[in-house]
Design a protein around this nucleic acid. Structure first.
Lengths: 344, 344
DNA sequence: CTTAGCACTTAGCCTTATTGAGTGCTAAGT
DNA sequence: ACTTAGCACTCAATAAGGCTAAGTGCTAAG
């Protein structure tokens, strides 16, 4: 267990390091701590903190830098979310436009706002859609041999794609086919749609000669739905924290952040309201200098979603946690407004 | 006018510099030129080339580096497109998959192929669509107060977007509205659609209370169509040529390459079959180290499109020009196959 | 016109101070 | 038993000097 003074020193080291980004020495702390103690005493305390693994030196005669374990300790025990002042809250609210045509826009906007306020990279996930089922399926002819396939999900999202029919199919055939598909898959959870259709191929063969192509279309549409589950704001801000000149790292980061699976693994939110992952707790080694704060938001029967912030390990956690705490409520309330306006 | 020997020297400097990336000195050239002359003679010739502005020194006692003007001269007068060997052609053809659901996929694929073959950044534009008009307009109800608006263009592309009706509108009202819009804008060039609708607001007011929102939707859909006019492959390869550590340049490049207008200005193709822009001929100063080769392709009545390659100024022009010359034909032929298969 | 020879220039690299911030340890003070 | 002044020591960062390799321009002779 740490003494009061040790806690103060740890906290001061972390705060200073967040500000200046350079190791903090005993003299600097001497000037700064609330109580007065000599630098020699501080040195002694710091060597205790170092033995506990909470701070490190960059070399044998440098000042101290918080270790990842130190940040962990700080986040778990010391950090207090900063309250959001009224002005900031106001500016968040005005930043959100007023009219939304799609729920996606709300999330894209919140990622944008979050990144602009912090100069970090922000990620906003749509509400978890594990209970989403296929609500409607239509095919709309668009000229001779071209149809638009439209899938409507129970969460209100709609995906569509044009595709060309390889063989001529008459209007009646098309209708019949649509009926078959409607019977088979409408009402199923979207994860099962493709599997179920696969089983129904014998039936479909009455109407289409290459049901494979047709299945592809479903697969594509649903993939697309899965890919558009999240929105990123301030992607470029990520680059501010690479060790300068490391083009390889930049490439890795960039290819990382565009893929849903990677991002999702990265966050791996355990359901806590607010979760902080620091440096090596992020599975990807290119992110050793980064921390990720994620916050879930709750939109009642529409499920739970998540917003997250990716910044350097030495970010101002209390400020960021406070901000994220506010933003998650804002996002939830915007989404609920949106759903309410149109559900009924 | 340059002598034969001067041409050979210029060409050798450019080729060497493409290979090694370091300034080329007189002794290195002495070993390499087809005829034998002493390094002193080469020095004399090089100083002529320098007076003409075709080569530069990096400092007073360094070897020579081709200047942008030198590259220009080389490209205009000396470069011969390399023939594509059979194996490469074969691999291009197999890289293109066989089945395409949308013409977009062909272009996305060709940008991909081009970037993988060159390790540069490739851009593929859809055929110029200035003659495209709005062919069909539909509104499909998707539940209580939600409709899907679908616009079909004469070039076969289709754009759709869901939107929520702010007030309840009855089925008949919707139908009537659709009829009005159909009368007013179907058949018009897409560039005029929004303007025309604006004029028709009085008419629409019979059916919709906020035609502004409705116009927004049209605007959005058409914007989206404009934005998806091009595809980029190997975006990350761009980063291989920034002066190391210049994060600002990376950011500029990245925000540049995502915007249609910027890319379009950049290429500013004058209609030539193959066009090369070198260094400062590219308007953006972040691209001083880059060259851009663009090649148009022709798909008859469907217009002309363009593929382009963005690489370092010291790229192997003859190879790249040869490659682009082949690829444009491949793209055109794939697209024509695609159009033919479905037009009739 | 070409070439050998020579004096000169420069980047890159290596080595060697110099400085400043910081540490650990010891011994004296409370 | 803590705390603190003092001191010797360490290390990164910077600057300054020297050396080398590659290259140049110029001159004078072939």
């Amino acid at each position: 267990m740490l003494t009061e003074r040790q806690l103060l020193i740890l906290e001061a080291i972390i705060q200073d390091y967040t500000d200046v980004g350079r190791p903090i020495g005993s003299k600097a702390l001497e000037r700064q701590l609330p109580m007065h103690v000599s630098s020699a005493t501080i040195r002694n305390e710091m060597s205790v903190l170092e033995r506990l693994g909470l701070v490190n030196k960059e070399h044998s005669s440098s000042g101290r830098v918080p270790s990842l374990k130190g940040y962990r300790y700080y986040v778990d025990n010391l950090v207090k979310p900063d309250a959001i002042d009224k002005q900031t809250l106001e500016s968040i609210r005005t930043s959100f436009g007023s009219q939304f045509f799609k729920s996606d826009e709300i999330l894209a906007e919140s990622a944008q706002i979050l990144s602009e306020m912090t100069n970090y990279t922000a990620i906003a996930f749509k509400p978890e859609s594990k209970d989403v089922f296929l609500q409607g399926f239509r095919v709309m002819p668009m000229g001779k041999q071209r149809v638009m396939v439209i899938l409507a999900m129970s969460d209100g999202t709609v995906e569509s794609q044009i595709f060309n029919l390889p063989k001529h199919i008459s209007g009646e055939e098309l209708e019949a086919m649509v009926r078959v598909i409607n019977d088979q898959v409408v009402g199923l959870p979207i994860t099962q749609v493709v599997d179920k259709l696969q089983e129904s191929i014998p039936l479909l063969l009455h109407y289409v000669h290459q049901p494979g192509g047709f299945l592809d279309v479903f697969g594509r549409i649903l993939d697309k739905a899965a890919q558009d589950q999240f929105f990123i704001g301030g992607k470029l801000n990520m680059l501010n924290f690479v060790e300068s000149g490391d083009i390889e790292q930049i490439k890795t980061l960039y290819s990382l952040i565009d893929r849903y699976d990677d991002i999702n693994d990265l966050i791996g939110n355990s359901g806590e309201n607010i979760q902080v992952k620091i440096g090596n707790e992020l599975t990807n080694s290119s992110l050793a200098n980064y921390s990720l704060i994620s916050a879930t938001y709750d939109v009642n029967q529409h499920g739970k979603g998540l917003i997250a912030l990716l910044g350097p390990t030495n970010m101002p956690y209390s400020k960021m946690i406070g901000l994220l705490g506010t933003l998650r409520e804002e996002v939830a309330s915007r989404l609920l407004d949106y759903y309410n306006a149109y559900d009924e």
